[in-house]
């Protein structure tokens, strides 16, 4: 997924080959990750697609099924991956992910610790930010999830950048061999305050910690723990995204001319009737040019979680 090898950096030009991971795009809310395999087929409501037809085509191309239905084949990115990965837990989405990466000040070469791994949605973006020379150490106490995450990172080609450990971070803290090595720590745990003292030991001075919690009580408790564990600049945010629908339509024009005629006293005794006829006049005139309009989409996420950030104090 990431062009960690500079020779492959213009991978889009590279044509799809056997063994590639592609994102099959039907609609913006209907995508699927598929490993291309010469002998396989993809079956969906549009029909049967033979993988062998895909090989040699460029990423971004449109491919057809035996029935003439079509899908697009996209190169995977962390954003697309977040939309197609298998949900083994609640996951973070682009708004929170982007803000976390920016506020943790991640750049190539950074070492970042994460717990829990969950479905690896955030991990993928952490890996992108610290590539090609940094490393993500991510921990989950749930063995199956850790194994599944490892398999995913293998599939997305991130295994060199990410190490998944099975560990109870709230109970045992992060492993001692990482003490003082972390540029940043991210916590998505039910009781983050239990992991904060250990996170403090792992961080370099002035390193940044972020804790994601859905409930304000968790934030309250984490913030108090941070303050008493040599953290400073403790700040809590909430980020959301509103999406917009766009459509082009011809709007009926309001004709002032017609209105004055209608308004002649005596001609229309009943106000109600008058209004009705004006309305029909407006509708009748659709000579206006089409315009593009936007409005917020009907449903949106109203809350995901609070993001609490803090910096390890720098004491001489």
């Amino acid at each position: 997924m990431l062009p960690t090898d500079p020779m492959k950096k213009l991978s889009f030009k590279r044509h799809i080959s056997d063994g590639d991971l592609v994102i099959v795009y039907e609609k913006h809310d209907n995508m699927k990750a598929v490993k291309v395999s010469e002998k396989s087929v993809l079956e969906n409501r549009f029909g049967v697609f033979k993988h062998s037809d895909w090989i040699g085509k460029p990423f971004g191309c449109k491919v057809s099924s035996h029935k003439g239905g079509f899908v697009y084949l996209l190169a995977p990115t962390p954003e697309l991956w977040t939309l197609v990965l298998s949900h083994r837990t609640q996951i973070l989405y682009i708004a929170d992910i982007s803000f976390v990466v920016m506020y943790l000040e991640l750049i190539p070469g950074c070492v970042v610790l994460e717990s829990g791994t969950g479905s690896g949605s955030l991990t993928t973006s952490l890996a992108r930010a610290i590539a090609p020379t940094g490393h993500v150490y991510t921990f989950d106490f749930h063995e199956q999830r850790a194994i599944a995450a490892r398999e995913d990172f293998e599939k997305t080609g991130l295994s060199d950048l990410v190490s998944v450990g099975v560990r109870d971070i709230q109970g045992e803290g992060f492993p001692k061999d990482l003490v003082g090595r972390a540029d940043a720590v991210f916590l998505d745990l039910p009781q983050p305050w239990l992991a904060i003292p250990s996170a403090g030991e792992m961080l370099k001075e002035d390193g940044v910690l972020c804790s994601f919690s859905p409930c304000i009580e968790q934030v309250q408790r984490s913030s108090e723990t941070l303050a008493s564990n040599s953290f400073t600049d403790i700040r809590t945010f909430e980020v959301l995204l509103r999406t917009y629908e766009v459509r082009e339509a011809k709007m009926d024009q309001c004709q002032t001319q017609t209105q004055t005629e209608e308004g002649t006293p005596g001609a229309r005794p009943f106000k109600r009737k008058q209004r009705a006829s004006e309305a029909s006049n407006w509708q009748a005139d659709n000579s206006g040019s089409p315009s593009v309009m936007a409005r917020p989409s009907g449903e949106a996420k109203g809350h995901t979680g609070y993001l609490t950030f803090a910096r390890l104090k720098c004491i001489a």
Partner: peptide, 13 residues
Amino acid sequence: LQITEPWLREYQV
């Protein structure tokens, strides 16, 4: 294609 509007709120804790 998607148009999104980000929203950010800070909390005093």
